[in-house]
Design a protein around this nucleic acid. Structure first.
Length: 900
RNA sequence: GGACAAUUAGCUCAGCUGGUUAGAGCGUUGCGUUCACAUCGCAAAGGUCGCUGGUUCGAGUCCAGCAUUGUCCACCA
């Protein structure tokens, strides 16, 4: 043993912060500083966490996966850039600050005024941003902080303005009066995707409506009705179509027009619907198709307007209760039924959405664009995935993406909140009343304010996803033609939760294909939701939240990373528990101790970069296994099968290296170079997954260099199979390490040795022979004697035998435990310790098991159809299997004889 | 209403284009401190692969239907 002093366990907290500082100080997070010629760039644009947020386990997954990819690519010689940032998350942030303000001073944002309120938000965000940045560091994320961006940065604001103006000039942005999703609490519009649905038990009111009886869930909207619609082919109501009818109501009679429209389902209810164009999306469309006026009765506070007589000022809910009572008095209610339906609520605050008419800015997704070859934004974005320019992982999300885009309506991008990018539009003149389609405004749309007096900027801000949609290129300097933009865009790998497919991913594709004439990323990988160990969502009320920072402190960032990656598949939710993290902490410690042993047992610690020559069977075996591991792990990482890659490296580390090879190394001295080579290769393979522990060990090699920039291990590869996958981008051919016949033989032979050792250990355990007690053994075989003879020292050492004899023919040793493995008969003469009855039973059971299997194989091989139709190789394999087991059966029966 | 997942050992999950007696981790049981590691070692027990059909020489794997759970989309007044 050398005098190296290495602690017995890896205490993560003693290393993590110092290592991260060292990495950051090295400058290698910045691709410009990476050593060597690196012709190819590899870029990941980090999904910016909300500036107000704290790191949660969802971020942790994202950071773990992306860091694996970027560290792998960096070691593989790419000019690797992982660009971090934060998102201003307009509505979420404003809502949060409003809440804090209310708690602190009881004031609203209106009390403060726009400017002061925004100053509050800025102060809050500045603080939160630094919090989440430090938390990101705790995960070990190797992102380039020198390029960090914020969606409200000056540069990004320029990008937003530029994008808006270009779209406006191309006729893709227009201002229009529409029924919009309105959140009365946020006082803002919401896009369709920002609306959530909650099932509620409500009432369905059947009301008498002039000559009709019809059903409605919202009787209060009757005050805004301007027409009634029936299906064009509905014979029952033909006579009314086109007529104007006077309908009795709680505020007296009012006039409606009867129209025929195909959206009405004649089978449902009475086949008649009342139409409230101002407060329902479908109704708005009906009214538009038939040139019917709309009548707004609900205002921006969600209250009934002054045109509602005695109901003016009531909330819609209060009004509903009151109006039902009043209608019952007038005999206008036919019946009331229970009714389950979905209530639209704001995704941020849960307030019931009120559809109201409003003049807003929209992005047209269906207008043909010249620069897109006459295609619309929608069509271009569809093509990006259909043509394979963007590959979605897992590909089942393709369908979801197509469906969403195909049904996409124009995107309402203006918001009436204060925090965000202000709409780059200026007005001069009086702003028109909301219900008026004609605007007398003089409008100026531009990236810089117009010259001249009296211009007033639009008070609305843009949907936060409008700026997020530009993220992959606005962060690289667009609209300026920067070097970064040229080098790093399109990015290579986007990774986020599938809940962001519509909100963000699709919009990035829309924006980038239009503004950059290129996709924003070549691949997009969706991770699943992290749930608790019982598969429930993590939530405050369930008290089942796992805080990444807590578990990093307790188990180390490496263990947390492994627990979030191994055992997960893209797009599927995963369950996480502290027990799982604890398990990986144990593994990290195992890796530490493997290293500790190797570093302490070698004479000289040195770099061994070339594969050393094997001297023994075990050497040949482990080196062949390692080559195979490099090939498989590399291929799996390239294909983003992180879990599979990790599992394979894990298995090699623990089940092959630690359990077998290191034990052999204790018996066969002179393996320093091989041990060091394996260790160094393994540290490289693990580094993307567990950067801290691997870097900490690497430092003990004393090279003075960082592991994070070491070259990825190489191997001689053979291609297996061909690229025959259906995937649009084409999956690469499967790759294996090139193995020689000698390698394959070594693996087979060593596996035989392993089975012999396991069999002897099994015999000992079954007979309760203390592990410490030395035994002798006799192994009999005619065919493969040489293997055993050459490996007697290894077998004896691992099986704790003090004497191992190899004989050609069965000497029928009496008083022995026995087993048959790989054609060998194994006898452990234990004499007086032998429980003949127990041993007989054990062997009989074994024999019975094999007999069943032999019968099964015999039956199979007698089946003419199997012989005729199965591939030759399979038949041969089955025949060999049969012979093998028949022989084994004979040997076991012989052993049974010897017990008599 | 439509779509998509999932359903394999007590728990959490692997099992690729169908072909060894279906695997791992955790947990359980027995034994154990051999100088890398008790955050460890050795060994063991534990599964009619949700159900029903079908294709096939052969199905956990492919097809159809069903059931259960979950998610997304749409939403009819």
């Amino acid at each position: 043993m050398s005098k190296l002093d290495i602690p017995k366990s890896f205490e993560s907290k003693d290393y993590e912060d110092a290592l991260y500082k060292q990495w950051e100080a090295s400058g290698f997070f910045n691709p410009d500083n990476l050593p060597g010629r690196r012709p190819n760039a590899y870029t990941i644009s980090m999904p910016p966490p909300n500036a107000t947020g704290v790191l949660h386990v969802g971020h942790a997954v994202m950071l773990a996966i992306q860091d694996i990819v970027i560290r792998f690519q960096r070691m593989a010689g790419k000019r690797a850039l992982w660009l971090p940032g934060t998102d201003h998350a307009a509505i979420a942030t404003q809502t949060k600050v409003e809440k804090l303000l209310k708690e602190r001073s009881g004031k609203t944002r209106q009390d403060l005024g726009r400017e002061k309120f925004l100053a509050e938000v800025d102060a809050f965000v500045a603080q939160s941003r630094s919090t989440i940045k430090n938390q990101t560091r705790k995960m070990g994320s190797s992102c380039d902080w020198s390029r960090e961006r914020f969606t409200l940065d000056q540069g990004l604001n320029e990008a937003v303005n530029e994008a808006f103006v270009r779209m406006y000039r191309d006729g893709l942005i227009y201002r229009g009066l529409r029924v919009v999703n309105w959140c009365p609490r946020c006082h803002s519009t919401l896009s369709d995707d920002e609306v959530e649905y909650r099932p509620v038990r409500a009432k369905l009111y059947w009301i008498k409506y002039g000559p009709f009886v019809l059903a409605t869930a919202r009787p209060e909207t009757k005050l805004g009705d301007t027409c009634v619609a029936v299906h064009p082919s509905d014979q029952r109501y033909q006579q009314f179509v086109g007529q104007k009818l006077m309908i009795p109501g709680v505020l007296g009679e009012f006039e409606v027009t009867v129209v025929a429209d195909a959206v009405v389902d004649p089978e449902f209810g009475s086949g008649v619907i009342k139409v409230t164009p101002a407060h329902d999306f479908t109704d708005f469309e009906i009214a538009r198709r038939h040139g019917i006026n709309l009548k707004q009765v609900i205002d921006e506070d969600g209250r009934m307007m002054s045109n509602c007589g005695t109901y003016a000022g009531l909330t819609t809910r209060q009004c509903r209760e009151r109006i039902v009572i009043d209608m019952e008095k007038l005999g206008l209610i036919e019946k009331i039924e229970d009714y389950d339906h979905n209530l639209s609520v704001c995704y941020r605050c849960g307030t019931t959405i009120e559809p109201i008419p409003s003049k807003q800015w929209f992005v047209s997704v269906s207008t043909p664009v010249k620069s897109l070859g006459g295609r619309s934004l929608k069509e271009r974005a569809l093509a990006a995935v259909k043509d394979g320019e963007v590959k979605i992982i897992p590909d089942r999300f393709n369908k979801v993406y197509f469906h969403w885009l195909e049904n996409l309506r124009d995107w309402c991008v203006s918001r009436q909140i204060w925090y965000g990018h202000r709409v780059p539009v200026w007005y001069r003149g009086g702003q028109s009343p909301i219900a008026n389609r004609q605007s007398p405004d003089e409008i100026y749309v531009g990236t810089t304010p117009p010259k001249g007096e009296g211009w007033r900027q639009d008070s609305d801000t843009l949907d936060t996803w409008f700026s997020s949609g530009l993220w992959t290129f606005s962060t690289l300097g667009w609209p300026k033609a920067t070097k970064d933009l040229k080098t790093f865009h399109p990015t290579d790998f986007m990774e986020t939760g599938y809940d962001l497919l519509f909100f963000w991913v699709a919009r990035m594709i829309i924006m980038s294909t239009y503004l950059m004439k290129a996709v924003p990323f070549r691949q997009v990988y969706f991770h699943g939701l992290v749930r608790d160990e019982q598969g429930r969502k993590m939530s405050k009320s369930l008290e089942n939240i796992i805080d990444p920072l807590d578990v990093i402190a307790a188990y180390g960032a490496d263990a947390v990373r492994l627990s979030l990656v191994i055992g997960t598949t893209p797009g599927n939710d995963t369950n996480l528990s502290e027990a799982k993290i604890g398990g990986f902490r144990n593994f990290v410690n195992k890796l530490w101790n493997i290293s500790r042993y190797i570093l302490m047992s070698v004479d000289t610690v040195a770099l061994v970069e070339k594969k050393p020559k094997a001297k023994t069977l075990a050497d040949r075996w482990i080196l062949a296994e390692l080559d195979e591991l490099i090939a498989v792990a590399t291929e799996q990482l390239e294909q983003h099968n992180f879990s599979a890659a990790g599992e394979r490296i894990y298995e090699f580390t623990w089940s092959k290296l630690a359990d077998w090879y290191l034990e052999v190394a204790k018996l066969e001295p002179g393996k320093d170079d091989i041990l060091l080579y394996i260790l160094q290769t393994l540290l490289k393979l693990w580094h993307p997954f567990t950067p801290f522990v691997t870097e900490a060990i690497w430092r003990r090699l004393g090279t003075g260099e960082l592991l994070m920039i070491q070259p990825w291990p190489t191997y001689v590869k053979t291609s297996v199979g061909s690229p025959r996958y259906a995937g649009v981008a084409g999956k690469p051919a499967s790759v294996k390490a090139q193995t020689t016949a000698a390698d394959r033989k070594a693996v087979a032979e060593f596996e035989l040795v392993q089975s012999v050792v396991s069999a002897i250990r099994n015999l000992r355990a079954e007979s309760n022979i203390a592990p410490g007690q030395k035994l002798s053994a006799i192994i009999i075989d005619g065919k493969n004697q040489k293997i055993i003879t050459r490996q007697t020292a290894v077998i004896a050492g691992l099986a704790r035998l003090n004497d191992l004899r190899v004989a050609k023919t069965s000497a029928k040793p009496t008083g022995s435990l026995s087993a048959v493995v790989g054609g060998f008969e194994i006898y452990l003469p234990v004499a007086e310790l032998l429980d003949v009855k127990k041993e007989t039973t054990r062997l009989q059971q074994e024999a019975a098991r094999i007999e069943t299997f032999v019968n099964h194989l015999e039956a199979k091989l007698k089946n003419q159809r199997f012989l005729d139709r199965a591939p030759k190789a399979i038949v041969v394999a089955e025949q060999e299997k049969l012979v093998l087991h028949q022989e084994k059966l004979v040997l076991i029966k012989r052993q049974l004889e010897s017990l008599k």
